[in-house]
Every structure is written in C-alpha cells, then in structure tokens.
Design a protein around this nucleic acid. Structure first.
Lengths: 133, 133
DNA sequence: ATTAGCATTAACGTTAACGTAAAGGGGAAG
DNA sequence: CTTCCCCTTTACGTTAACGTTAATGCTAAT
C-alpha cells in the first residue's frame, strides 16, 4: 500500500474555499509546512489540513495570524525540560481563558444588539397601533 | 442647570485607553459624530461614549469597522415605513444569529485547544514518570 | 513540437486601521 | 508679548494579509 503523497495546493484551496495564494502565504509565515514531492510540488497531508482548518477557524473569529501562530506553535514545539513543559501548559491554560473571556464579550455584544432590537420593535409596534388598528 | 457640553477628545481617549487619532479616525469613517463647540472643539456626550464603547467591544472581538458600522447604523437610522422597519428587524435578528454562530465557533476553538493541551500533558506525565518516580 | 493546464518563485500593488509628523488656532499663565 | 498646552486639519508612513502580474517549469494531450 503506497502512502498517499497528499493533496496538491489547488485541491486544498477548493476544499477550504480559499485561494492558493492564501495557502502559500500561510506557509511563507510559518503556519504551514507541507512536504514537497520530487518535482517541487507541495503535498498537503492530513496534519496540514487539520492545521489549516484551525487557522481558518481562527481567522473567522478575527484572530490575527500572529495570534494563531502562537496557539499552534504553543503545543507543537519540541520543548524539553520540566520547567519548559510546565510553562507551556500554563500559557496554554491562559490562552483558553482568553477564549472564555471572548465568549463572554460576545454574549455582552449579543445583549446590546438585543436591546437595540427591542427598542426598535417598540417603534414598530407604535406604528402598527397607529394605523393598523 | 447648564447642559454639559461633553468631554473633549483627550479625556475620552484616556477613559477608553485609546489614542485621539483612533477616535478621530472613527469619526472620519462615520462611526462617531460628536458635536463641536463654538471654537471648533469636539465634545463627546453620553451617546457618543456609549457608541464608542460598543465599537471597541466589537474591535476586541475582531470585527472590522465596516461590520461594526453595519451593526450600529442598523437600528439607528430613521427608517420609516413598515416594510423598512420589518426588514431592519429581520436583518438585526440575522446579525444576532451570526453572533451566536461565532460563539459556537469559539467553543470549537476552545475544544481544539483543550485537545492540544491534553495531548501535551500526556507527554509531560511521561517525563514525570520517567525520572520523577 | 506545440499547446494546455497546473505548478513554482519573485516582486510589486492594495486595503484597513491606524501612527506620526507638520503647520497652525485659542486661551490661560508668566 | 511670549510660552505652553490642548485643540484642529492635512497628509504622508506603516503593517498585515493577501491580490495580481510576470516569468518559468513539468507533464499530458494533440
């Protein structure tokens, strides 16, 4: 059984609905590191795809690439030594907490929007009562 | 009782921990519209401050100014006519749903991070068992 | 052999969201 | 009057995240 070489860039682009330029850029800044076949063509394997998925999720959430890289590299580097490991985990927990705070802020924003909407609906009901009666 | 003129830009900047340039820029792109006193100085009143607060919340959440403007203008324009009002409310509900989706994606990201962390902790425990025993 | 299609790198262009002078007005203090 | 400080507008500079040629290469089909 031949181990699959991985998808070429165009198929990955189609799969995730991004341009090839975007994918190359992510590699350029060290977010992706696909293997190259003997004729110099990028081959994306499962772990590359999983990582890209995470990157795009982060992007949709408005994280900058630098922040996303932090998250990815965090648990991926070959850190050695107990202190390093402990620090990594602590830092990771902090990142997770930041995500939690972000979730709370989103709830606050949701609340604001609901408020605006309610007030707006009152104006609407006023109009309804005025001539719809 | 003299109605307060509103805060000058420097105090607003201090209050929200942003630069005056940022505030002026928000005005430049139509997100803020403070009044000007007789000597041409911007005066920010309560509604301006509330709006700025919402803008900055949106920014922290990674929304672009264009998206934030959409949200703000949504329920603030003087729309008239039932159809317009209905459309505004429908659109607002859609925005709220987008926020909900975003919350879900954040939960997914949180899950991913937790996964990475768990796997990392296993490596850590392996090291502990190796020499800490 | 040439065309077609997808790949590569290199490099310049673009937009958003400000940063950073530069040049000047208004008023309070010395 | 001059200095100081905060305000103003105008305008050029900067960074991130790509978009967009341009020039070239490999491989399969005509």
């Amino acid at each position: 059984m031949a181990t699959t070489l991985g998808l070429p860039i165009s198929e990955v682009a189609q799969l995730f609905d991004v341009t090839t330029r975007t994918i190359r850029y992510y590699e350029e800044v060290g977010l992706l590191s696909p293997v190259y076949d003997e004729s110099g063509v990028r081959r994306f394997q499962k772990r590359d795809l999983a990582r890209l998925k995470l990157i795009l999720r982060g992007k949709r959430l408005g994280f900058r690439l630098a922040e996303i890289r932090e998250m990815i590299l965090l648990f991926n580097e070959d850190r050695t030594g107990r202190k390093q490991l402990e620090r990594t985990i602590t830092y990771g927990e902090q990142k997770i907490q930041e995500v939690d705070e972000r979730i709370e802020e989103l709830h606050a924003l949701r609340h604001d929007l609901m408020d605006y909407k309610e007030k707006f609906q009152q104006k609407y009901r006023a109009l309804q009562g005025e001539s719809g009666d």
